[in-house]
Nucleic acid binder design. Structure first.
Lengths: 133, 133
DNA sequence: TAATTACCTATTGACATAGTAGGTAATATA
DNA sequence: TATATTACCTACTATGTCAATAGGTAATTA
């Protein structure tokens, strides 16, 4: 289940994509347009900055801006940064300890298959496919 | 993220599938073979009985049994019963109040597409594909 | 009658989610 | 230089879900 954090992150990215060209976009504007608490967005945006998807500058005229074109940003990247993991089961998450039952596990192949399906879907879905203009 | 409940439920179903023919299988045996607390399995099994996937009878010689052949039981059915919902986002879960932003939501089509992908995958995956014998 | 099994209600500790609160640092403009 | 604006930082909290555990009662068979 994708949490609000991941879903809001995508909406922030869409908003920034649709308002790029007009320089930096203040988070206040994004929050108002998207009807999301600015305070909460600060947390989300930090992940996106940390993942080098966007950058921010302070002061008047400041705000956030995409670091790449929307065609070159996948939804998968956004979710990877904001959700802990996109994996459907714990034993396939990054950095989890290897499951002792893995060798004999009868369900692992199915989970792996689904995992690949999921990652392929979101990695192939570009931000540009979600924007209006 | 699929929880232990859903994952254990699938393992119970596999276990029952592999031991059908020998009448009813006591939960105690399943719990031992799968190394899962019997007490916890009771909760899970209740959902499966409620969904008419298995039936149980009390007393000596009792236990649980599949109601259908493994070829006719999908993993999707099992997960629907034990996980609250298979949907990736809250606004697509069964019985959720309709989102007021739905009409203008730019991400909804993507979530719907992913939702279909997920349901198709698990509904087409049959229990018989997971069993050993 | 005793053993075995399903089935029932309630409780709990740990953790994640979805925020809120109150600041400090950086930058532009008047 | 003062002020407004913006990003950026640390901490806190209420609520809910997850993953069980605990302690029974009812049904069935030998």
């Amino acid at each position: 289940m994708i949490s609000t954090k991941g879903r809001y992150a995508i909406r922030v990215m869409i908003d920034l994509a649709e308002h790029r060209g007009s320089g930096y976009t203040p988070l206040k504007d994004v929050a108002e347009r998207q009807s999301i608490s600015k305070k909460y967005l600060e947390i989300i945006v930090r992940d996106l900055v940390g993942g080098d998807l966007i950058s921010g500058i302070s002061g008047k005229g400041g705000g956030y801006r995409l670091n790449r074109d929307p065609e070159d940003i996948s939804v998968g990247e956004i979710l990877d940064l904001t959700e802990g993991s996109l994996s459907a089961v714990a034993c396939l998450s990054d950095g989890c300890e290897p499951c002792p039952r893995a060798a004999e596990c009868q369900t692992l192949p199915m989970w792996s298959e689904y995992d690949k399906l999921t990652h392929d879907f979101f990695n192939n879905k570009k931000l540009s496919e979600l924007t209006r203009n």
